[in-house]
Amino acid sequence: MDETGKELVLALYDYQEKSPREVTMKKGDILTLLNSTNKDWWKVEVNDRQGFVPAAYVKKL
């Protein structure tokens, strides 16, 4: 969790967005987890953008 109590995830792999609903991340990025109710796609925030990334590409910290 960060200082505001939000849950964080670590990008395990690079991911290039394939639609406007997704976000690009690089391996090693720390992202804010917004929603993990879907087992396949998690909603995150990175670089002031919100979108989805494959759940298998990130790990909760």
Score class of each variant (00 low, 15 high):
49 R>D: 04
4 T>D: 12
39 K>P: 15
14 D>Q: 04
3 E>A: 14
10 L>Q: 11
14 D>Y: 04
12 L>V: 07
4 T>I: 13
46 V>S: 15
55 A>H: 03
25 M>L: 08
24 T>R: 05
50 Q>G: 06
16 Q>F: 13
3 E>V: 15
9 V>S: 03
56 A>H: 12
48 D>I: 05
10 L>P: 00
42 W>V: 06
58 V>W: 01
45 E>P: 00
11 A>L: 02
30 I>C: 06
52 F>P: 00
29 D>A: 07
56 A>L: 11
48 D>E: 10
26 K>C: 10
23 V>M: 11
51 G>Y: 04
51 G>R: 02
24 T>F: 04
23 V>D: 00
7 E>F: 11
17 E>L: 07
37 T>C: 11
9 V>I: 08
54 P>L: 03
19 S>D: 11
61 L>I: 15
58 V>M: 05
37 T>R: 09
18 K>H: 08
51 G>T: 02
13 Y>D: 06
13 Y>A: 10
2 D>K: 05
33 L>N: 00
27 K>V: 07
10 L>A: 06
49 R>V: 08
28 G>V: 00
4 T>L: 13
34 L>V: 12
9 V>Y: 10
38 N>T: 06
36 S>R: 08
57 Y>G: 06
22 E>R: 04
22 E>T: 07
29 D>S: 07
25 M>F: 11
9 V>F: 06
6 K>R: 13
38 N>P: 04
33 L>R: 00
15 Y>H: 03
21 R>T: 13
25 M>N: 00
21 R>N: 15
4 T>W: 12
19 S>L: 07
37 T>F: 10
41 W>L: 03
51 G>W: 03
2 D>N: 15
31 L>D: 00
32 T>E: 09
5 G>D: 12
61 L>A: 05
15 Y>C: 02
43 K>E: 14
20 P>V: 09
56 A>V: 09
19 S>A: 09
32 T>H: 09
33 L>G: 01
30 I>E: 03
36 S>N: 09
7 E>M: 12
27 K>G: 05
23 V>Q: 03
16 Q>R: 11
19 S>K: 07
16 Q>S: 12
29 D>T: 07
25 M>Q: 01
45 E>R: 10
17 E>Y: 04
40 D>R: 11
54 P>Q: 02
12 L>P: 00
5 G>R: 13
32 T>F: 11
32 T>W: 13
27 K>R: 10
48 D>A: 11
44 V>E: 00
9 V>H: 03
31 L>E: 01
61 L>Y: 08
4 T>K: 09
48 D>H: 11
